[in-house]
Design a protein around this nucleic acid. Structure first.
Ligand code: SF4
Ligand code: SF4
Lengths: 132, 132
DNA sequence: ATATTAAAGACTGTATTTATCTATGATAAT
DNA sequence: ATTATCATAGATAAATACAGTCTTTAATAT
């Protein structure tokens, strides 16, 4: 029960992009160098963020990534969902999930966390994160 | 980011034990049969619950497991911590965690979930779970 | 002694995570 | 048009974690 490193990279990447401003285009090359991770690996994570609608990409020379939403609208949960998916933490496989009080409790617990992370925006933490 | 099956088995096992009452001794054999899982596998999970102080075991003939705490005091979180450990969901490896606003948000989010699961007791869901 | 039961250890198979390497496709600058 | 730059996709591989089995050891009631 841990968040993946990919989620960590995604959160840091979005933070970095917010710090650089909404109109600055960033290549995966500089981002990968910034986080000491291979270009192709980070590239896949960025592609997930593109598909989730958080950032957009333009190919070719002078291409790169830019934020798609206004920074103050990007929540922690947006980024996490983009990487980890939206499946429930607790699943038993059986069908009668709707009636099951066990799953009800577990899902409500998950919702507690998610509501909190939807309220928290990355822009609120970004400036301190950026310079290390 | 999912709870393990072991946690699922642990929750169901404690629920089952609560249903059977605090003084009834249950062997891993009957529990394993109840949940269609191998005896040795479930045995390890039960041992973790013993070490966490949730249940106690007695070896030898007529031995088995009994609840150690009054059922109304056993929370979801107690069981989850026993199996999943108490490590944080989000860790980056770097040291300045205390000052890091990113980790602060992530840890607070985790706390939201955990506080909820500490309030929820297994006895409140047990009777419905038991008969399937 | 023997049967019963829990605990511990070694081991195996599978799935997921974390990457890397090698193409392929798009676009701007020349 | 050619070339350099940049994103995307696919194949592969190593490392880790999960799920589960098999075997042995230890404790205890009969
Ligand atoms: S900013 Fe926070 S999460 Fe990121 S590397 Fe530093 S301590 Fe870790
Ligand atoms: S009681 Fe709930 S969690 Fe357990 S098997 Fe049924 S549906 Fe699944």
């Amino acid at each position: 029960m841990k968040y993946t490193k990919a989620t960590n990279y995604a959160l840091h990447t979005i933070s970095f992009m917010i710090e650089r401003g909404q109109n600055e285009k960033l290549s995966v090359h500089v981002l990968a160098e910034r986080f000491q991770v291979s270009v192709t690996y980070l590239s896949k994570i960025l592609t997930q963020l593109v598909k989730a609608g958080l950032i957009e990409s333009v190919s070719g020379a002078n291409g790169g990534y830019t934020l798609r939403k206004p920074p103050e609208n990007i929540s922690f949960m947006d980024v996490i969902w983009a990487i980890e998916g939206t499946g429930a933490f607790f699943e038993c496989g059986l069908q009668h999930e709707s009636k099951c009080p066990l799953q009800k409790v577990m899902n409500e617990a998950e919702t507690m966390m998610e509501q909190y992370l939807q309220k928290k925006k990355l822009i609120d933490t970004v400036y301190i994160v950026a310079d290390e």
